[in-house]
Design a binder for these strands. Structure first.
Lengths: 126, 126
DNA sequence: TTGTTTGCAAAGGGTTTGCATGGGT
DNA sequence: ACCCATGCAAACCCTTTGCAAACAA
C-alpha cells in the first residue's frame, strides 16, 4: 500500500493546494502546461484520484463534471446557465433542517452537496 | 416551440410515471424492450431530456450516470454509500437562506439540487 | 532490486448529433 | 403540407486502461 511521492503527483497537488477554486482535471492539466510542467493527462487523472483517495484533496461531482478542490472547507456551487461556469457559494448552516430530515427519514447523513442553478453576476450585467 | 405527443415519448413517460425509483436511460430502454415497445436508444435519451425540460420528470446527475425520476416535484436525494442507491428526501424550504445567498453573491438562483451522502434505513439495520 | 508510477495511445461508457425518413397536427 | 421527432450509426466527451519504459524507495 506504500505510495511514492513522485514529481508529477506533487505538481498536481501544488496546482490545487491553497487554491480557492475548483478545477476540472482538464483545467489542472492546463495549469501544469502553463507552468511548463510536463505531465500526461492520464497521470493527472491518476494523481487526482490518488490524492482524493488519500484525502489530500476534495472532489465534487456536479452535472457530469468532476471538480477537484485543494481546499476542504465545505461550500456549494452555482452553475450559471448562460456561461456554463461554476462559482463558489458560501454554505448556509442549517443543522436544524439536517436533523429534521434525519429524524423524518431515518437516514444517516454525513455530508451534502448543493448545486444552485441560475445566472452569475457577470452574465446578469449583459 | 410546440411539441408533439408522439407514441415514443408517451411510452418513455409511462415507464417512469408514478414509479418510485430512479432509472438510468439504459434501464428505461430495457423496460421498453421488455414491454415490446420499440424505441431507439437515442430517442429514449431525447425523450428523457425533453420530459425533463418540460418538467414532467426529475433528474439526478451523478458521477458518470444520469438517473431519471418519475417524480417531477422538487425533492432531494440521499445517496447511500453502502448500497449505492438513491432515495428521495423531502425538500425543506429555506427561502430566507436562498434570499441571503442571492443578496450576498449577486447571483440569480432559479432552483437548486441537494445530494445527501449517507446511509439508508435498510443498510443501517445491518 | 522491486514494485509503483509514468506516458502514450487506444479503449471504454454514457450521451449527443447528422441526416434522411417517418409521422403529428 | 409543414416541420418536429425518429432511427441508425457515427461522433463526442471525459475518464480509465494496457503495456513497456522510467524511477522512487
Amino acid at each position: 500500500m506504500a505510495y511514492r511521492n513522485t514529481k508529477q503527483r506533487k505538481d498536481v497537488y501544488e496546482v490545487l493546494k491553497g487554491l480557492n477554486k475548483h478545477l476540472t482535471a482538464d483545467q489542472v492539466m492546463d495549469a501544469l502546461t502553463e507552468s511548463n510542467k510536463k505531465v500526461g493527462l492520464a497521470t493527472v487523472y491518476r494523481s487526482l484520484n490518488h490524492l482524493y483517495e488519500h484525502q489530500k484533496i476534495g472532489r465534487i461531482v456536479t452535472h457530469g463534471v468532476t471538480l477537484y478542490d485543494g481546499n476542504p472547507e465545505p461550500h456549494d456551487h452555482l452553475h450559471c446557465k448562460i456561461c456554463d461556469k461554476f462559482f463558489d457559494v458560501p454554505r448556509i448552516n442549517n443543522k436544524e433542517s439536517l436533523n429534521r430530515i434525519q429524524e423524518e427519514t431515518g437516514y444517516s447523513i454525513d455530508e451534502y452537496f448543493i448545486t444552485y442553478e441560475g445566472i452569475c453576476t457577470n452574465c446578469k450585467e449583459k
